[in-house]
Structure formats: C-alpha cells, structure tokens
Design a protein around this nucleic acid. Sequence first.
DNA 1: TGAATTATATCGTATCACGATATAATTTGG
DNA 2: CCAAATTATATCGTGATACGATATAATTCA
Lengths: 142, 142
Amino acid sequence: MPAKKRKITKARYEALAELRYALRQFLRFSENAAQAAGVTPQQHQAMLAIKGFPGPDLITIGELAERLQILHHSTVGLVNRLVAERYVQRVMDRKDRRQVRLVLTLRGETILENLSTIHSEQLQRMAPQITQLLKGLRGEIF
Amino acid sequence: MPAKKRKITKARYEALAELRYALRQFLRFSENAAQAAGVTPQQHQAMLAIKGFPGPDLITIGELAERLQILHHSTVGLVNRLVAERYVQRVMDRKDRRQVRLVLTLRGETILENLSTIHSEQLQRMAPQITQLLKGLRGEIF
DNA sequence: TGAATTATATCGTATCACGATATAATTTGG
DNA sequence: CCAAATTATATCGTGATACGATATAATTCA
C-alpha cells in the first residue's frame, strides 16, 4: 500500500491554525513578561529549566541544553550571560568533576517566582481553549 | 491588601518546566518538518494561518500579522517571499481596494497538506501529556 | 593508556523580527 | 468634499539568537 492521500478538512486546518495562534499568544505574553522583568525570554526559560529540573539533583549544562532544545555550546553562552548578571551560579560536581551544575541565586529566584506566578495565571486562563483544541484534533479525519 | 507573596512549590516549577519542554519539543519537531519540506518554519506557519483562517473569507495582510503575532510590515516581507516561491497568491479585494487577500497556490496546498498530516499525528501523540500538565497547573497553590 | 564525555571558547554565518521612517492608494467620517 | 484614517508596501540599519565548524582542556571510563 503506497501513499494514503487523505484530504484534510477545512475544520482541521482551522483547528491547527487556532492552536498555533493560541501558542503564539502565549509565547508573546511570556516574552513581554520576561522583558518587563528585565530578562530576555531565553534567560527566563533557562531559569525555569534550572529550577524546575525534575528530582533533587541540580541540572548540568548538557541536561539544560536538552531541556531547552538547543546545542551544548549555545547553552554555555546562555549560562555565561546568566552568571554575569548574577541570576545563576555554577556549582562544581564532586562526583564527576567534568560536570558543572547550576543553581539560581536569590536574585534569580525572586525574578523567576514573579514570572512563574503570572505564567501560571495566564496558563490557567488559556488551558480550557487549548485542551479543547487538542481534543478536537484527535481522530475524526485521517 | 498589598502584595500576596505566595510561594511557588517545587512541583509547580516542575510542571511549568515540563510544559515548556514539551512545547519546545513540538516546535523543534515542527521546524524540522518544515525544513524537510523545503520551507522555512515561518513560511509554514503563514501558510497554515492563510489556509486555516476561520470562515469563508480570505485572510488579509493585517489579519495575517495578527494571527502570526508579528508586525504588519514584517508580514509584507514574509508574504513577498511566499509569493516569490509560488506558494501563495495575492488577490485583490474588490470591496476595499486597499486590501490584499491571500490564497495558497496548488503548490502551497500540497506542501501544507503534507505538513499538516504529520503535525496532526504528532499533536495526537503529545496531547495527553500536555492536557495532563495543564490540568496539574490549575488550582492548588496560589 | 587510549577513547569517550563534558564543558568551554572563538569566529563567522544565517535568520528573523523590529524600529524608524516614508510613500501611495483608497476609504471613511465630519 | 476634503481631511483623516486605514491598508499595504518599501528601505535600511539594528539586535538577538542559535548554528556550524573547529579547537582545547579536564576528567572519567573501558
């Protein structure tokens, strides 16, 4: 069985487009919030990834790269900027001394907490619509 | 009542971070898919917004800017590139001749359809996790 | 010990969107 | 009917990122 030329309905295109629209609105909101807090969006995301790394361990550079979906050596630059602004500290790992672990400073914590609060609120506002759109995308066609 | 210094739990940070991680994975997937199809991510998004504009009317430049959350004159450049590559056509609006409306060419339709199919699949894969995370974010704390 | 892992660094490239500003066509409102 | 608003277009420089390519260094592992 070769190709399965299944036509996509207008309704599905609309749902996909609407979802993207919602996504972009969220990202826009987030960018504005970060800027207003005096950090770049990337710095905000990195801080969240550092603080929200699952489990009790501190995140490493390599893990941060994965969580941010950027390359290893792009991450180093990003962390350098965060350290320069005193939002983050590097911590040596005793077990494996090649690795560096990252932790927020008090300064970083404060900013992240404020940002996280309004992000939570915004997400709660948007959640119903997004959930609905995702639900609408399943099954039906294709 | 002034400030409400409500502390955010580790679990909430983790949920926010996990949600971002999922989002970035989706966006990464989408970028790769677009590149593989021979268009830039922005071109793909614009085509989806054009095709998935709600209702029967064709979208205008101004409306496209809003849907993409970019500025008006950035949109013009994006559309120029889409027209140059023959993915999109400009259509004059007879009612209001200041406006330009946009429509996909057959060439554009084909690419968008393929991309939309795999995006639908990917979203169906990711939907349960995202829905769960959004659910987890509501209420509780703050 | 040699290979793999982890972090760091540099330098140029590419991509985008923006800011600022301007022009033009057209429509709308007082 | 004319002035103001709307819509699209254009140019040019700026800024922000991430990437590719490549290299070095420290450390761990097989």
